[in-house]
């Protein structure tokens, strides 16, 4: 995984609560057997009419946001299905940061496995960002979002921060505990 660098970009505002992973990547695209190529299907049913015509009223189709790397949204983003395809689609489309007041657990976890930074911010700060149209900078090292001269700090679990900053491979980390896993297996009666 690529180590996470500072991200500077305008913000794509997706003003909805409870966006579920069925909307982020609809089921007809879960049949692919690789991790890439999902970006074209991101928010498919919201983005396209009859499968190909871009819906003008959907925020991702506004040319203003075409280079945006930061998605801003509302409470409980990523609820529902565990499909990691949702994280793959966001990343493949170009989003490296998602900001919301809260996230669903499995989606939140999946983001870190793919080098996406999900940032939990209080609702007031989220509201401020919804009312801002200039570029912002997400700085993971310092745990801040810079909006012009205003600095908004954010909290993140220290181990998750480390994973992203160093681009760590989870499995390689776990395999360092091989002796402990083996010891655990020996200590347990066979179930």
């Amino acid at each position: 995984m690529e180590p996470f660098k500072k991200i500077k970009s305008i913000v794509t505002p997706l003003d909805k609560v409870n966006v579920d992973t069925d909307q982020i990547i609809p089921k007809q695209f879960l049949k692919l057997v690789q991790k890439t190529g999902f970006g074209q299907y991101l928010f498919y049913d919201w983005r396209f009419e009859n499968g190909d015509k871009p819906r003008e009223d959907f925020v991702l189709n506004n040319p203003k946001y075409c280079d945006s790397k930061i998605l801003l949204t509302r409470d409980n983003f990523g609820c529902g299905s565990s499909r990691e395809h949702a994280a793959w689609a966001l990343l493949d489309y170009g989003f490296k940061v998602v900001i919301a007041p809260s996230f669903a657990d499995i989606f939140y976890n999946n983001c870190f496995k793919n080098g996406i930074l999900p940032i939990r911010l209080d609702s007031q700060s989220v509201e401020k960002l919804f009312n801002n149209s200039s570029e912002i900078e997400a700085d993971l090292q310092n745990q801040t979002i810079a909006v012009g001269d205003i600095i908004i700090p954010f909290e993140i679990e220290s181990h998750r921060k480390k994973t992203l900053l160093e681009g760590l491979d989870d499995i390689a980390v776990t395999l360092q505990y091989e002796d402990k896993i083996t010891m655990y297996e020996k200590s347990k009666s066979k179930l």
């Binding site: 999946n110 499995i171 776990t174 896993i181």
Partner: peptide, 20 residues
């Protein structure tokens, strides 16, 4: 509990999962 595909790979390889 449900897990994403990265964790599926992790469990296949290690029979363990990291969880808070």
């Amino acid at each position: 509990f449900g897990i994403g595909t990265s964790d599926v790979e992790h469990v296949l390889a290690t029979q363990c999962v990291w969880m808070e």
